[in-house]
Amino acid sequence: MQKYIILFSIFFIISCNSQGKRPIPGETEYQKEENIRFKDASISPLKKKDLKKFKGLDFFPVDTTFIVTAKLTRTENAPIFEMATTTDRKPLYKEFGKLNFTLKGKNLELTIYQSQDDTRDEKYKNYLFLPFTDNTSGDESYGGGRYMDVMTTDISKKNTVVLNFNNTYNPYCAYNDKYSCPLTPRKNHLDIEIKAGIKVFKKH
């Protein structure tokens, strides 16, 4: 889960550009913030050789049809379980609920999870974890799937939440194999092409 709070303001971005520096790439503020973070050597997951050649992350064109409202059905008394990762690490998660939504005329469902480590951290206790794969995975997008952060504070009283697939991101393992990343559960495969959000990273 992304746990870096971007401290750069729009004013900072504008002031940098006004001083003749290269404009921050990205169609949206989300994309610009991601590119700023990845360019920062102190927090970037990129390997040194990739960081030197980094000019910006590759995203699908922003498409508002990939912004949907999902109905949340909370999972009662869900057991805590060890989620498989790319390493031997087994972080503890709990199923938070099911998200049902319609996209491109298809009725789809994803399971959303809550990290048990996050529930003990005041900064991240409202974060929910939504991993998924789709029919672009392994081709135009990262084969291990993509992630989306959802906030419990964004869930309405009617148990609906807006999912913006334009704001998806890759696990750090897509950039550097030193990281340990949760594996997307098989039940979270969407039988549709999600041509929105982050694309696969082409390593140098």
Rank of each mutant, 00 (worst) to 15 (best):
Y172P: 03
D118P: 08
T152G: 14
L110G: 03
L92P: 06
F66K: 02
D58V: 02
V150N: 09
K104W: 12
K178A: 07
N159F: 09
D50L: 08
K71W: 08
Y147T: 01
D50A: 07
S180L: 02
L72H: 07
F59P: 00
K53E: 13
G145W: 04
E95D: 13
I43M: 11
L72A: 06
N126Y: 15
G144R: 00
T65P: 06
A84W: 00
E95W: 09
P61W: 02
T65Y: 12
F66C: 08
L57F: 08
A174R: 04
P79V: 00
S156P: 04
D50V: 07
Q114L: 07
S42R: 15
I80H: 05
V68M: 08
I80C: 04
A78N: 01
G145C: 01
F38Q: 00
S141K: 03
N107E: 12
Y124W: 13
I67E: 05
L110A: 04
K125V: 10
Y124K: 10
I67T: 08
R74D: 09
P45W: 06
T86E: 05
T73S: 12
R146M: 00
M83K: 02
D121V: 13
L46C: 02
K53G: 09
D58L: 08
P91K: 06
Y124Q: 07
S180D: 02
R146P: 00
Y113G: 05
P45C: 11
L72G: 03
E95R: 14
K158I: 09
S180E: 00
K53Y: 11
T111D: 03
M151I: 10
